[in-house]
Design a protein around this nucleic acid. Structure first.
Lengths: 234, 234
DNA sequence: AATAGTAAAATTGTCGACAATTATACTTTA
DNA sequence: TAAAGTATAATTGTCGACAATTTTACTATT
């Protein structure tokens, strides 16, 4: 993952650095989803005081990667199917609106840059081979560009600063790299076209369909798995 | 304000209590928007240690009421017109989707309860007098019910747990109680009808129009003020 | 044997002190 | 006089210890 969250700011303090390490560990599943967090243990592991660790934990809570209860402690969030679907619903709402705003607020330069990026991806051999490159980095890259293009700080903070850490976590833990590469590419093209045409309404509609398609793709998979399980059980 | 944020949980720890007091003070403007926060000063004022205060500050940051920079300190967020409009855009996206989900997921009991609430407000003398009661409590109450009705924890947390503190802050600081009472009442009625009909698409559309109408109302006011200022300057 | 009660251990919350960084006031120099 | 540099003061970040609460292990009672 070379990709960087565009809202991320340099980690200067120790708490920042430990936060980043913990974030990575949670997203990648090195610290299990749903597991309890022991402050003394983690503090010892990272060789920092509990105060500093708690500062880092507060940041993890801010991007919804852990949950805290008073006098009880912290737990890594659980990755459930319901949670995943809820996340997609929320993304559909926020990124849809971001896309509409992008159509209104992006500069011509930004749009040109995004078009170039897509062309770049189109000629990329990885895409032609149907490999996951485009899905992973290219997809996230595209979505980031649109969100930033909204020029709406509120939307940018919510999506890039909070939601996307969870998105990455689900991607890692559920091992999601579905074979939608070429299809997603076409959808991205159409979205950029709508933005380029300054058609906010269409841009939002297309982005929402794009995300909803991913969600339905997952729902189908789940349904299939369920059916398989039940047939095995009998 | 008797109204309670439905996502709020009992404050057991000292940091919780100080957080609530600070939250109130910031929302009401007792601590000025945009002002710098002095940790030693506040800690002394509330008679707590700096550690405990910092815990409270972290929670304020979580609901976007303050912003922190490493080694520099915290500032109360500034209330700008751009920020207000961005907030409305975000609300439109999130609450619109919440309303769609409410149409799909609310139980019949919940819907009936919400209808009763609206009838209650209709017969309320305060509404008939066109007083601000309906707008303040009734409006927020209605929106909360819809959001909770989405049964989507992600949406509920984002809107009730984060956005609405900022909304309240803007309402207080900009002194917003525009005379849209009866109109808003009609709009609420139509939204409930759509939810009752389980028409998610219409419900979302109406909620978005409802919020957009408020936003445009503000934009008009701003434009008017600007025009007045300019005419005075000449 | 199962449950309730109690004591011990562990965990979280809070505190005050010190270290590192930033802001301020003053002096020096061109 | 203005600008740059330096020393001082103030603020934020980090630490280890203690207090309050929760969990665990054990004992006593029915």
């Amino acid at each position: 993952m070379l990709l960087q969250n565009p809202t991320k700011q340099a980690a200067v303090t120790t708490a920042d650095k430990v936060f980043e390490q913990l974030q990575h560990a949670i997203v990648e599943g090195d610290i299990a989803a749903g597991s309890k967090i022991s402050e003394p243990e983690l503090a010892k592991h990272y060789k920092i005081s509990r105060s500093t660790l708690r500062e880092a934990l507060n940041r993890l809570e801010k991007c919804h990667l852990i949950e805290r209860k008073a006098n009880i402690g912290s737990r890594v969030v659980a990755c459930t199917i319901e949670g995943l679907l809820e996340l997609y619903i929320t993304r559909e709402a926020l990124e849809g609106m971001a896309c509409r705003q992008a159509a209104l607020n992006m500069t011509d330069e930004e749009i040109a840059h995004m078009q170039n990026m897509l062309t770049q991806h189109a000629t990329d051999k990885a895409l032609q081979e149907g490999v996951s490159y485009y899905q992973e980095e290219g997809d996230v890259d595209f979505h980031y560009k649109v969100i930033l293009g909204s020029h709406n700080q509120q939307l940018i903070n919510l999506i890039c600063g909070q939601l996307y850490h969870l998105v990455r976590m689900y991607r890692c833990q559920f091992g999601m790299h579905s074979p939608r590469a070429t299809r997603a590419f076409t959808e991205h093209s159409n979205i950029i076209q709508a933005i380029s045409d300054r058609d906010g309404e269409l841009a939002e509609l297309l982005m929402r369909r794009h995300i909803a398609a991913s969600r339905k793709n997952i729902e189908n998979k789940i349904a299939l798995q369920k059916a398989e399980q039940e047939s095995q059980e009998t």
